[in-house]
């Protein structure tokens, strides 16, 4: 299937890793991007919404996204879930679907609670997220350097869709930048 590159979209900034991930989604024929928002995903979410070849779907909870992407795959669509580390906790039982049906699954997780975190309520899921993902059967890639993001996401997409595996890419809090609670926005 050929894709028409939408012309009305914001131009890709080659120095912005979020744009590089978006371009990778297009090149990898990602059709459904489901998410519960995190500030770190904002630009990527906006770009997916602006793309007429993608369904960008806001979820009421992250566990929905696991089931949603299972359905998408059954119907022949590749998808990705965007969430923050707290959302991983919401997914745990639904991850059993991935194991039971050996489904491909990719999630990009913005990490909170692990680096200079102001909000102590984020710390628990920041600490437990990598282990929860691993014991749930997912392969975990972690990225700290913006220059490594696209390559890492590419690896995740290949592992998932070439071999029917679950993969999580953790985008570290150092990479995203810690949330500034004193700023105006």
């Amino acid at each position: 299937m050929t894709l028409t590159h939408p012309s009305a979209l914001p131009a890709t900034d080659p120095n912005d890793w979020r744009d590089a991930v978006y371009e990778l989604f297009r090149a990898s024929a990602i059709r459904q991007v489901v998410y519960v928002p995190d500030a770190g995903h904002t630009r990527l979410i906006d770009r997916c919404h602006a793309d007429p070849d993608m369904h960008a779907v806001v979820l009421s909870t992250e566990e929905e996204g696991v089931a949603h992407l299972a359905g998408a795959w059954l119907g022949g669509d590749r998808g990705v879930m965007l969430m923050q580390s707290s959302g991983v906790g919401n997914c745990v039982n639904m991850f059993s679907l991935l194991a039971a049906c050996r489904l491909p699954f990719v999630t990009l997780v913005t990490m909170r609670g692990e680096w200079g975190e102001f909000n102590p309520w984020q710390v628990q899921m920041g600490r437990t997220t990598p282990d929860i993902l691993k014991i749930s059967g997912l392969t975990v890639h972690r990225v700290d350097d913006p220059a490594d993001v696209a390559e890492t996401v590419d690896s995740a997409l290949r592992i998932a869709f070439d071999g029917s595996q679950g993969v999580a890419v953790l985008l570290s809090q150092r990479l995203i930048g810690r949330k500034d609670f004193t700023a105006e926005d």
Binding site: R31, Q32, V34, H55, V57, L59, E63, E64, G65, V66, A67, H68, L69, A70, G71, A72, W73, L74, G75, G76, D77, G79, M94, L97
Partner: peptide
């Protein structure tokens, strides 16, 4: 809890 969400992903695909 996942039936409706799975059906939604399938319907969009």
């Amino acid at each position: 809890g996942g039936t409706a969400a799975l059906a939604l992903g399938l319907a969009l695909a």
